[in-house]
């Protein structure tokens, strides 16, 4: 099922992401996903997230699909040239995986193989363009595909709380022109910035899911402020996380904060995308508190 169909029906779409393990034992990921994420629309599978080598996104997507979940295949341009990207897209379609999220990807220097060659033959925009071309039955080299071409719900990302939000909007417009059907955002901790962003982004007419991270501790919040692009946790939230250490450790404070952000953003967007970062077990409580 393509999640774009749900947006078209006006549904508030909930997705969450899981990260494949660094190894071949996927039982734990599948168990968590089945237990905590089966009630939501779809599950993103990250693609060697943060440039750290792991089990493949596509294989994990297939395993989730076999368990009855709807996977979203995250695809970055860091590790594959246009031939490998297109080939993997055909493989995904053949396996019945028809949701894809297109990203440029972190630089190889950010991860655990800093010696690796960064590819970036295509980028998030030209990858969307490539998928659109495949959908028309022609590959990027101009060669015809045999038989029925694949069809995808083509997702893209945007960073609404970035300090260069106008440049982000310009890039978003390029992604729309290249074929993006929907957007998931970087984590939002400042709903007022997100709402301002949406006032400008709504002109593109594409559904946007607000990105949510459940903050686990004041230390994590500070780490994100110093190291994660486009993410800023305000001081009062950090104080809130500091106030009652036990409550924070149990995830109660984080879930409260995240639920509040979702409630504030919900009237302005078409869905929510949760990056649980290992706290998949908190997702059901979060959605309940957020009234979804």
């Amino acid at each position: 099922m393509k999640i774009s169909e749900l947006f078209d029906r006006g549904e508030f779409v909930v997705t969450a992401e899981v990260g494949p393990p660094k190894g071949i034992h996927i039982e734990h990921v599948l168990e968590e996903a089945k237990t905590y994420l089966s009630g939501i629309t779809a599950v993103n599978v990250t693609d060697n997230q943060s440039s750290v080598m792991r089990l493949g996104s596509l294989a994990t997507c297939k395993a989730l699909k076999d368990e009855g979940l709807t996977p979203i295949f995250q695809l970055t341009c860091r590790d594959r040239n246009r031939i490998a990207l297109q080939s993997d897209l055909l493989s995904a379609a053949m396996l019945g995986i028809d949701n894809v999220l297109c990203l440029t990807g972190d630089h190889t220097k950010m991860g655990d193989h800093p010696q690796a060659k960064p590819v970036f033959d295509l980028d998030s925009v030209s990858l969307l363009h490539t998928i659109k071309q495949l959908e028309s039955g022609v590959d990027l080299g101009g060669n015809e595909l045999v038989g029925e071409p694949p069809k995808f719900a083509k997702g893209a990302v945007v960073s609404p709380c970035s300090d260069s939000v106008d440049a982000q909007l310009a890039k978003m417009e390029r992604k729309v022109a290249a074929g993006a059907d929907y957007f998931q955002t970087q984590a939002v901790f400042e709903p007022e910035k997100f709402i301002k962003f949406m006032e400008k982004a709504k002109q593109f007419g594409k559904p946007v899911q607000v990105g949510i991270i459940i903050p686990k501790s004041a230390g994590m919040a500070k780490f994100m402020n110093n190291n994660v692009a486009g993410v800023h946790v305000p001081d009062d939230m950090i104080e809130e996380l500091k106030a009652d250490k036990e409550k924070t450790k149990a995830g109660i404070t984080g879930v409260e904060i995240a639920a509040r952000i979702i409630k504030e953003c919900k009237p302005y967007c078409q869905g929510v995308h949760i990056m649980a970062l290992g706290w998949e077990s908190k997702v059901p409580a979060l959605l309940e508190q957020a009234g979804i």
């Binding site: 950010m110 030209s126 692009a229």
Partner: peptide, 17 residues
Amino acid sequence: KSLVNGQCGGSKDGKCE
């Protein structure tokens, strides 16, 4: 990253990731 279609999401305070 030698990108030709605009910035990635990796810049922080105007600096490269």
